[in-house]
Amino acid sequence: MLDFETYRQLLALYAEYAAVVDDNDWDKWPDFFTDECTYKIQPRENFDRGLPLATLAFESKGMLKDRVYGITETIFHDPYYQRHVIGVPRIVRAEAGRIETEVNYAVFRTKPDELPTVFNVGRYIDTIVRAPGGLKFESKVCVFDSEMIENSIIYPI
């Protein structure tokens, strides 16, 4: 069970995470993670079957920073905006400075000259730890429900 202050910090972590990725503030994105972390975007079918194949998979904060460099400096794509709607975290387990959660999410995408579309829907399966500076993601697995993704995933989910 979490105390109220830790739960408030947990909600703030998710709110700030969504704000940073929605605002394309990519330099701040890796700061949500521990140095040794896991970040995956994986189709539900693979996750449910225990298959390791993921659409994107990073294994450290350094790899996240490399992705930021790719997004900002090398990847060419049509510009678009994201808007995250994140549900209330369900606490799966909380013990000794570790919190395991599941949280539903929906990401809407808007290109400047088009109507918004539903881009990606699924759940985060997260492990969060207390670190210097507050709560951080040790592991974030974005399990998306569809077996298909539109075009490609450029930005973090």
Rank of each mutant, 00 (worst) to 15 (best):
D145E: 13
Q42K: 15
L10T: 15
V121W: 09
A96H: 11
I86D: 00
T117P: 04
V143A: 02
K28T: 03
N120S: 06
N120A: 09
F76E: 01
H77L: 09
D22Q: 06
Q9T: 15
G133A: 07
D145Q: 07
D145K: 01
Y80S: 05
V85G: 08
S139C: 10
D31M: 10
E150P: 00
V21L: 14
D126F: 11
I91V: 09
F76W: 11
A131W: 07
L2S: 09
Y17C: 05
T6E: 03
R8Y: 15
G134H: 02
R49C: 13
V85N: 13
A94Q: 02
D35P: 00
M1H: 05
N104K: 01
A12C: 14
V107R: 01
P112F: 03
A18T: 12
M63T: 00
E114T: 13
M1L: 01
E73I: 05
P112Y: 00
R98Y: 03
T117G: 03
P112S: 04
A57M: 05
V143H: 06
D35A: 02
D27A: 08
I154C: 05
V21W: 01
H77S: 13
L64H: 06
Y14K: 00
R109K: 15
Q42M: 13
D23R: 14
I157D: 12
R44S: 10
S60A: 02
V118I: 10
A54W: 08
I125M: 04
T74D: 04
D22T: 08
P132E: 06
D3N: 10
F119H: 13
G133I: 01
F58T: 10
L13S: 03
V88Y: 11
N151F: 01
K61W: 00
D113T: 13
L13E: 15
N120C: 15
G97T: 12
Q82H: 14
L2G: 05
F119E: 14
S152L: 05
T127M: 08
E95Y: 08
F4Q: 02
S60E: 02
Y14H: 14
F137Q: 04
W26E: 02
K65Y: 07
E100N: 08
E5W: 06
G62T: 04
V107P: 05
W26Y: 04
I99Y: 08
N120I: 14
C142E: 08
R90Q: 11
